[in-house]
Design a protein around this nucleic acid. Structure first.
Length: 104
DNA sequence: CGAGTGACCGCAA
DNA sequence: ATTGCGGCCACTC
């Protein structure tokens, strides 16, 4: 039974494997989950899903922090800095270099 | 149960 | 380069 899990469930699994010193994007998570076009719901999952997962390590395709994040982008940047990830101008420094990848 | 919303992405003009 | 539009799935009203 391949992927009997729902889209949301798959996202959680991916997030659980996301290293603390790396970041990822909504579109990538969606694509790895099996829905490359469902990046929107990924952000929705962040909003409705539990905050136990490191959602702050997830940014948009441009490496920019989320726009609707509670409190503002400063909060997300602060959280990223707490994990050892530096940011600049509301964007992750060396975002592509820190971008998490499944297949290398 | 139906309709609307949402922390996005990709393409077209 | 910027703006506009559609599409995807899950959650709320």
């Amino acid at each position: 039974m391949p992927v009997d899990k729902n889209f949301k469930d798959s996202i959680y699994e991916l997030m659980a494997q996301l290293p603390s010193d790396k970041v990822t994007t909504y579109g990538d998570l969606a694509a790895w989950a099996g829905y490359p076009r469902a990046a929107r719901i990924v952000g929705g999952i962040c909003h409705y899903g539990p905050t136990e997962l490191p959602w702050h390590r997830v940014v948009n395709r441009l490496g920019d922090v989320a726009r609707g994040f509670p409190g503002g982008p400063e909060v997300q940047i602060q959280l990223l800095a707490g994990d050892g990830i530096e940011c600049q101008d509301w964007k992750v420094s060396d975002f592509e270099a820190r971008r998490w990848r499944f297949v290398l």
